[in-house]
Design a binder for these strands. Structure first.
Length: 574
DNA sequence: ATAGGGTTAG
């Protein structure tokens, strides 16, 4: 049988497999299910195999052994059609064949990949009836299914009920929580894992780092990093990739560069992570420099993600010509342009004020434009005050049935900038009729491990009095520096004074004022905002960084802004 | 009849 194995691994094409099969049939070795299973497994799993052929061979045999079924179910589970794996599993049941733990395992793996919650639950119930209830591997897979399908409470419950758990079990839930928008819980589970004496591995720390990235929790990220060094995972490529991403998303791009420079082996993902990180921090030149050198210096070929990162870098740094060049170059290197690449270029042109070209790009592209593209164009029209094109984009969005709050807000902003209050009212009316509401902006700041959340005009914070007093003081001091409130950023048709107040009490300004009174001098003030930072706040933050000699970092929906000595790292281009 | 299955960053 070992001989069959070694022959199989020499097969590089279906033709070779068929030749081998012919010999096995002649020598009557193929009558043994062991031999057939080997061939089926190779066909259905190996990249040089052929799942369709495996199915064909399977159908020519009767009285299948469980392992032959398993080979097919497993093959489909990792194919592009995981649903087929579940269908084969069901067929097996119908033929009164009893699946073993492996069949269940492969079928569940398929459920995880196709996000089949219903099917996952069925198979979960069945394997308990088959007597595999105590199988830790099966339980781990089910936790993964539940987590990926978004029923984290069930994943958690199953985890809690287990009497024995191993490292992958912990990992399945840590990763599930991290990917399921519960990074806090992921981190505390990671800590609980360590406290209970289970030694985290590569995958556990990657999950923990991913949670830190989402939270922008630099201090906890550093803590995890220290642990990583302690257990000598700090040369592991995937761990380093997660570290790069974490440091970049926590606002400490220099630390991300350190990790990148020191790591012994860089993969494609490493390059993509650092280029994207630099892009988010507005370091377009550095990002493009790395992009240009990756192929020549390390032989790593850029893929679609790399190109997206490079275009994004050009975008945030205003490198219009470089971005267009990179975009055109893609097809030459055999990387297909997808809708996100187009989105980036439309943004690039739009931000540079080249609205007609941006519009042409959308009209001439070979893909069906999505709402994001028209929203991008609408955003550019808002910046440059182009009413006609804005109306066109807005109309397209309406036709597409897109009713995102941002569309209405931007259209209304375009009108408001020209004082066309009747049109503003019309947009607001449409918003009401279509039941669209502006997603409330909120900002938070973490001080001494406690998260303080603010919404616009928030007066619920216990230090509210102090915060508002500080904002009034800031308002006076920045006006002395020539600040004029950007009331054009306010869409409501209200009096100038009210507008000023609405502006002054934006959530990010509240968080900033709180930071000024609580974060000790010399320390960085870090703020997170769920939407993009407002234009007026951007101006104010620059002034505050100068007048109060404080460094402020804002991570918004799209990127980082680092305010220092009156300037922002984005160079006012965002 | 032998084992084989689970968790992974851009």
């Amino acid at each position: 049988m070992a001989l069959v194995d070694s022959f199989l691994h020499k097969c590089k094409a279906l033709k070779h497999i068929k030749q081998l099969q012919a010999q096995l049939i002649v020598s009557s070795a193929f009558q043994s299910y062991l031999c057939r299973t080997k061939l089926l497994e190779f066909c259905s799993i190996s990249p040089s195999g052929d799942l369709g052929y495996a199915v064909e061979v399977f159908r020519h045999v009767d009285n299948h052994h469980t392992n032959e079924w398993n080979a097919i179910v497993r093959g489909f589970a990792q194919s592009d059609e995981p649903r087929q794996a579940v269908e084969w599993y069901v067929t097996m049941l119908h033929q009164a064949r009893r699946p073993d733990a492996l069949t269940c395992s492969f079928a569940l793996k398929a459920c995880a990949r196709m996000l089949g919650l219903f099917e996952g639950r069925e198979i979960h119930g069945q394997y308990i009836r088959f007597g595999f209830e105590a199988d830790v591997l099966l339980q781990t897979t089910v936790i993964d299914v539940y987590a990926k399908c978004g029923v984290l409470e069930q994943a958690q419950q199953l985890f809690d009920e287990m009497t024995r758990r191993d490292v992958p079990t912990w990992n399945a839930l840590i990763t599930g929580l991290a990917q399921g928008n519960r990074p806090r819980d992921a981190l505390s589970l990671f800590n609980r894992m360590r406290d209970s004496g289970v030694v985290p591995n590569e995958i556990s720390v990657i999950g923990a780092l991913s949670a830190c990235s989402q939270l922008g929790a630099a201090s906890e990220g550093k803590f995890v990093h220290a642990y990583i060094s302690e257990v000598r995972l700090d040369t592991n490529t995937r761990v380093c990739n997660a570290l790069i991403d974490m440091y970049a998303k926590c606002g400490t791009i220099d630390l991300a560069c350190d990790v990148f420079n020191k790591m012994p082996d860089r993969s494609l993902v490493s390059w993509n992570a650092i280029i994207m990180g630099l892009a988010m921090h507005g370091r377009g030149f550095h990002a493009v420099q790395l992009f240009n050198q990756m192929d020549s210096s390390s032989g790593v070929r850029p893929d679609a993600v790399t190109y997206l990162a490079a275009l994004c870098a050009c975008n945030h740094a205003g490198l219009v010509e470089e971005g267009l060049r990179i975009f055109k170059e893609m097809t030459k290197y055999g990387v297909t342009q997808n809708i996100k690449h187009y989105g980036c270029v439309v943004d690039l042109l739009g931000r540079a004020g080249r609205l007609e070209e941006a519009h042409m790009m959308i009209k001439s592209m070979p893909l069906v434009p999505d709402a994001v593209l028209w929203q991008t164009l609408l955003g550019a029209c808002n910046t440059y005050g182009n009413i006609d094109l804005a109306e066109l984009a807005s109309e397209k969005l309406r036709e597409m049935g897109s009713a995102s709050d941002g569309d209405y807000v931007m259209m209304s902003n375009v009108y408001a900038a020209y004082g066309r209050w009747v049109d503003v009212g019309r947009v607001r009316e449409a918003m009401k009729v279509n039941e669209v509401r502006k997603m409330p902006g909120c900002s938070f700041i973490e001080v001494d491990g406690i998260v303080h959340n603010f919404v616009n005009g928030d007066q619920t914070h216990s230090n509210s009095k102090e915060i508002y007093a500080k904002l009034d003081e800031i308002s006076i001091r920045i006006k002395a520096f020539g600040y004029v409130p950007g009331t054009r950023f306010v869409l409501h048709d209200i009096g100038e004074e009210d507008k000023e107040n609405v502006l002054l009490y934006h959530s990010e300004k509240l968080a900033m004022a709180f930071g000024l009174v609580t974060v000790k001098e010399g320390s960085l003030i870090q703020i997170y905002k769920n939407l993009r930072i407002c234009g007026d706040c951007h101006i104010v933050f620059k002034l505050v960084s100068k007048i109060y000699e404080r460094e402020i970092v804002v991570r918004d929906r799209a990127r980082f802004h680092r305010f220092k000595e009156g300037l922002c790292s984005c160079g006012d281009y965002w």
